[in-house]
Computed example of a mutant assay.
Amino acid sequence: MPNPHRGDVEAIIGGRRYTLRLTLGALAELEAAFAVENLDALGRRFASGQLGARDLVRLLGAGIRGGGTPLSDEEVAALPLGDGLEPIATAIANMLERCFSSGGDASPRP
């Protein structure tokens, strides 16, 4: 069960519930995937709103793995979009907001 105090977000994909969580390891994975040097740069990259499908796969994969489900990015990319992209994009946005906001605003934390 997702715990919002840990930054957990629930996503239902293909009828299955996943817990998304950005752990320190997931953030390090994303720094490498997006070729940025630090969390501030990572937060700015996400705040730019310029995310493609591969970016969403990387984010969703890191969040799913951080939440405890060991899926590769290839397996994440193959998940069905039966409910469309909006629920997944919303879950990713919520996960990023919980990780990078402080006190309710959406500015990146250092």
Rank of each mutant, 00 (worst) to 15 (best):
A26K: 04
A62P: 03
E37V: 05
A47V: 03
E29H: 11
E10L: 15
N38S: 03
V9T: 15
P87M: 06
E74Y: 05
A28T: 12
V9M: 08
P108L: 04
P2E: 13
A62H: 03
S102T: 11
C99F: 13
A93S: 15
P70H: 08
L27E: 04
E97V: 06
D105E: 13
E31Y: 00
I88L: 15
G84R: 08
T69G: 02
D55M: 11
A47P: 03
L51Q: 13
R16G: 00
D73K: 06
Y18W: 05
G49K: 10
G67Y: 06
I92Q: 03
G66D: 09
G61E: 03
S107F: 06
G43E: 11
R17S: 10
A78P: 10
L27D: 01
A41F: 02
R17E: 06
A33P: 00
E37G: 07
A32W: 00
D8E: 10
L27W: 02
L79Q: 12
H5P: 00
I88K: 07
G15C: 07
G82P: 00
L56F: 13
M95W: 07
I12L: 10
S101N: 13
R21G: 13
R17F: 00
C99I: 00
E74N: 10
G52M: 03
A106L: 15
L39S: 09
A26F: 06
M1C: 08
R6V: 04
P4A: 07
F46K: 00
N38L: 02
L30Q: 05
D105T: 13
P80R: 05
E86K: 02
E37P: 01
L56N: 14
G68Y: 07
D40F: 14
A33I: 02
A32K: 15
A106V: 12
T23K: 12
G7N: 01
F34E: 11
Y18H: 10
T19V: 14
A28E: 15
C99V: 02
G63D: 09
A78S: 13
D73M: 10
E86H: 02
L96C: 04
L27K: 05
G43Y: 13
A91F: 01
T90P: 04
G104V: 04
A28M: 14
E75Y: 07
I64K: 04
A93W: 03
G67T: 09
N38G: 13
A33T: 11
G61C: 03
S102H: 12
R109P: 02
L60S: 11
R65G: 01
I92M: 09
E31C: 13
A41H: 11
G43D: 09
A35Q: 04
A11L: 10
N38R: 04
